[in-house]
Amino acid sequence: MNVFDIIGPVMIGPSSSHTAGAVRLGRVANKIINIKDIKALKGLKLEIILSGSFARTYKGHGTDRALLAGIMGYHSYSEEIRDALQIASANGINYKFIEQDIKNAHPNTARINFELDDKVGTVEGASIGGGNIRVDLVNGMRVDFTGENNTILVLHWDRPGVIADVTSLMRLKYPSANIANFKLSRRERGGEALMTIELDNRRGALDNEREMAADIQGLNNVINAIVIRAI
């Protein structure tokens, strides 16, 4: 904790959990869809399930706008959040919010189903307080990361040696990066698999990690590698 965790963050109100945290959840989906230019999101179909307290208070907290803004790549301090519904429509993004309790989920949980051309996937997570999030599910695969550390997600084909390829690359080219937490999950043998690699925080690490993700993306059998920046 530092002084800017107390006098900060700068955010769009009204609620750190129901607004700022919701933007961050949306941003995880944005990174997984992996399209930076909002114009290229034209045709994106979203079905967003709001569970628990999210379902009951989303209008007053602007949770719907916040999630949508995050999915479009905005930050928790972007003034565009307030107009996110209109911005989405103007950019040809189709969205639907469904109030439906997800069994055994944290009270502030959202499940984002997205479809854009051949990209189809799901991100599910919870806003666990103070703008902090926990991501539970990516494309049907269980994950568990909080965003306290910079996290690299590697979507890949389940083949022998992929983990070794990724960690050797890290060891050789990024010797100061240390893995704080590692998780592998897959739906079926030989299908899509997902590595969740949480890294110890280091000064100036983010640029280094973006480069690392780009390098990992170039490895055999890797479909996509993204960096989720720490809070």
């Binding site: 107390i6 006098i7 900060g8 963050p9 700068v10 955010m11 769009i12 109100g13 009204p14 609620s15 750190s16 607004t19 700022a20 602007g62 706008r65 301090y77 003034e79 959040i81 307030r82 103070g130 703008g131």
Partner: peptide, 18 residues
């Protein structure tokens, strides 16, 4: 009230007490 209208604020220490 700016916070409640989705305005930009500094959480200090929280949005509710901004």
């Amino acid at each position: 009230s700016y916070n409640a209208s989705m305005g930009k604020i500094v959480a200090a220490p929280t949005a509710g007490s901004c």
